[in-house]
Each structure stands twice: as C-alpha cells, then as structure tokens.
Amino acid sequence: MPVPRYYTIGAVAPDLRSLKALDERLEGLGVSGEAHLVLTRRRDEPLVGVTLPGARVSTVESGLSRTQWFELFSTYLGVTAVSVLMGAVHLPTGLAVQTVMTLAAIVGLVIYHRRPQLEKKVLRMGLPERLAEEWQAAFAGGFALSLVTVPADLFDGAQEAFLEDPTLLAPQAIDRRPVA
C-alpha cells in the first residue's frame, strides 16, 4: 500500500495584490481552498478573509496568556508595594522607582504585542526551523505568509505558481512525506 506524498510550499507576500494573484493561480491549478493557509497580522485578518474567501486565514500575533497576565500583574503589584514603602522613607525615590517600573511595563507590553509570533506558529505546524526563521525574517517586511499543502501530482504546478511572481519573498518547499 503506497503512502501518499505531500509537499508544503510557502512564501511571504509583500502586499494583498500579490497574495490574491497567487491564490488565483493556485485555484487555476485545482488546489482547493482548504489547502491554502494564510498567516497574517491580526489587523489584516478581516481584509484577507474577504479577499480570499476560500482560503483559511489565521493570525500570527498572540496576546499574553492568563498565566502571563497574572505574573505581570503580581510583579507590578509587588514593585508598587516596594515603591510605596520606599516613598514612606524617601518620597522622590519611591516615585522614581514607580515611574520607571510603570514605563518598563508599558514598553514591554508594546514591544511584545508588536512582534509577530510567526516562527513559533510555523514550528508548531511541524515545519523545519530553517524555514520558520527565513519566513520570520521575510515577514517583517511583508504582508502575509501563504502556505499550501498539495499532493505530489500537483507539486510542480503549485511550485511554478509561487515562482511565477518575483515579488514573493522567501519561497520555500518541503517534502511532507510521513515517516513509516
């Protein structure tokens, strides 16, 4: 009994126009919409969902988990308690500590929420770390990561669909052959 062979092909689209053109080329080859996964930033998800109704769209940004929010809040509360005690002894020192910790917490949250978590999401899909790193680097200047998983008989056409557009960043393919 032969085991079917699948390939995953992906690239970072620099804008919505090139993503739509890629989707149209893939549809022309007979690649089903459910085989096309688009990873995009949270603010672009509705736009991509409307533009590519057949594709699966997912976001790559993630917020803090409940545990992380609890840890942040408890640490901030502890620092606030210490700064209040410092303020009782020397008010300017207590205010300075509280100000620095508040600014550090705000800057940390802004940096965390602005940085896409693409690499982690791609690794959770079982794709190699090398591809995840390349796509993460290209995603910083791109719009969305487009991934397609196709059977071996559609691989050549799908690969050509990705390579046809020179504006696509970091086009990569991997054999998804199951290990027996």
Results as ranks from 00 to 15, higher is better:
Gly126Asn: 09
Ala21Leu: 07
Arg56Glu: 07
Val50Met: 15
Phe143Pro: 00
Gly94Tyr: 04
Ala13Ile: 04
Phe139Ser: 01
Val179Met: 15
Pro92Cys: 14
Leu118Asn: 02
Leu163Val: 06
Thr99Val: 13
Val97Lys: 00
Leu109Phe: 06
Asp175Pro: 03
Ala21His: 04
Thr40Leu: 04
Asp156Gln: 11
Ala140Gly: 10
Leu109Arg: 02
Gly33Asn: 07
Phe70Lys: 03
Asp156Met: 09
Leu109Ala: 08
Gly33Arg: 08
Val31Asp: 02
Leu147Thr: 05
Gln68His: 11
Ala105Glu: 00
Val31Ser: 04
Thr99Asp: 08
Leu91Phe: 10
Tyr112Ala: 14
Ala104Cys: 13
Glu133Ser: 15
Leu109Lys: 00
Trp69Gln: 10
Thr80Phe: 06
Met1His: 08
Val107Ala: 12
Leu85Arg: 03
Arg130Thr: 15
Leu154Cys: 02
Glu160Lys: 09
Leu109Gly: 03
Arg41Trp: 01
Leu85Ser: 09
Val110Glu: 05
Val79Ile: 12
Glu160Gly: 14
Ala152Trp: 08
Leu91Arg: 15
Gly33Val: 14
Gly63Trp: 02
Ala21Arg: 11
Arg17Thr: 12
Ser65Cys: 01
Ser62Met: 11
Ala21Thr: 09
Thr149Cys: 12
Val97Pro: 00
Leu91Met: 15
Asp44Cys: 03
His113Thr: 08
Met1Gly: 13
Leu85Lys: 04
Ala13Pro: 00
Leu29Arg: 06
Val79His: 00
Met101Tyr: 05
Gly30Lys: 10
Glu119Ser: 06
Val97Ile: 07
Arg115Pro: 00
Met1Trp: 04
Arg25Gly: 02
Gly30Glu: 04
Gly78Ala: 12
Val48Tyr: 02
Leu64Thr: 08
Val107Trp: 12
Gln68Lys: 11
Glu164Trp: 13
Phe70Asn: 13
